[in-house]
Design a protein around this nucleic acid. Structure first.
Lengths: 157, 157
DNA sequence: CAGGGAAAGTTGAAGCATCAAGTGTTGACT
DNA sequence: AGTCAACACTTGATGCTTCAACTTTCCCTG
């Protein structure tokens, strides 16, 4: 008794799949070429830079803000730490959380990479998109993200 | 002289990034668990099944329809061929194209996997999305995909 | 028709992501 | 005070993706 997708839905779905399959590689490719960074690397640095306290966040918090699993984040933080852009340190609050801090070098890398990345995002997404489209995009994407989170909750209970 | 993103744009962008980072893994996870398939594996089988002639397509055509590089596709087709779900054969038209054909076994796998996958897509994306949202999604996603393709053209010329 | 360049595909290596299993830590309940 | 489940990670193995290099085949242009 499967409810198949309507024509309209199917077309929208194929386009959305196209975005998933093409946008991430496109962003990766620009950042990799110009700054030897993954889009996910960039996100980590950016989220740390925007945290209030000393550019520092607990692993789980950073995982939440970057939409990543703790495992994925741990591997990436190790890489960034090897490059000296980030530093792990114990939390004074609890011995099971480890804090990640953006170093000065990491901040410089971010400052250097940001303009090109933002330019790419503008070019691929926002240029020629009217304000009502931006609003619709935020609404729809937000809705999808919420549904995914709800569904994860349901499956782990 | 970087034109940074407006507040509205930034919020929309973070949500869209969330979709990229969460939706693909969510789809992969369901298909992997229930059918030992990647979302990209599924797309390949599905695109072959919908081709007119004998469930057969040239590699490049399939790469186009699945938004993948030829290299990525080649590796995946090798895997699917090992499992007996797909078969490579030479094209009668030209000796440099290789055709990929969906086998009966591959068709059965697709038939078995489809309901669960469609159900997941409904649950994560389309349920509770009005018709005008679906239309907006198609329009916006289509726009982004176009811009990515244009930008690839520009950079290879 | 000869050569050169582009197109179609394959391959191997390197880097990423995911999964499952592990360690230590904490809070809650008895 | 002791136990036990849940939390916050980390690690190593496996599989997937990308990248660069390569082969074949085709087309075009002089």
């Amino acid at each position: 008794m499967t409810r198949w997708l309507e024509d309209e839905e199917l077309r929208a779905w194929l386009k959305l799949a196209g975005v998933m399959l093409k946008l991430a590689p496109a962003l990766d490719s620009q950042l990799q070429r110009d700054n030897d960074l993954t889009h996910f690397d960039y996100l980590c640095l950016a989220m740390l830079s925007e945290s209030d306290d000393e550019r520092t966040l607990p692993m789980s918090e950073l995982a939440g803000r970057t939409n990543a699993s703790l495992s994925r984040l741990s591997h990436v933080v190790s890489k960034l730490e090897r490059r000296g852009w980030v530093q792990r340190c114990p939390s004074p609050r609890s011995r099971r959380v480890t804090l990640v801090r953006l170093t000065e070098d990491g901040w410089q890398v971010l400052v250097k990479a940001a303009p090109g990345h933002v330019e790419t995002v503008r070019e691929l997404v926002f240029d020629e998109l009217g304000p009502e489209d931006v609003a619709a995009l935020e609404r729809i994407a937000g809705h999808i993200v919420e549904r995914i989170e709800e569904s994860r909750l349901r499956s782990t209970c």
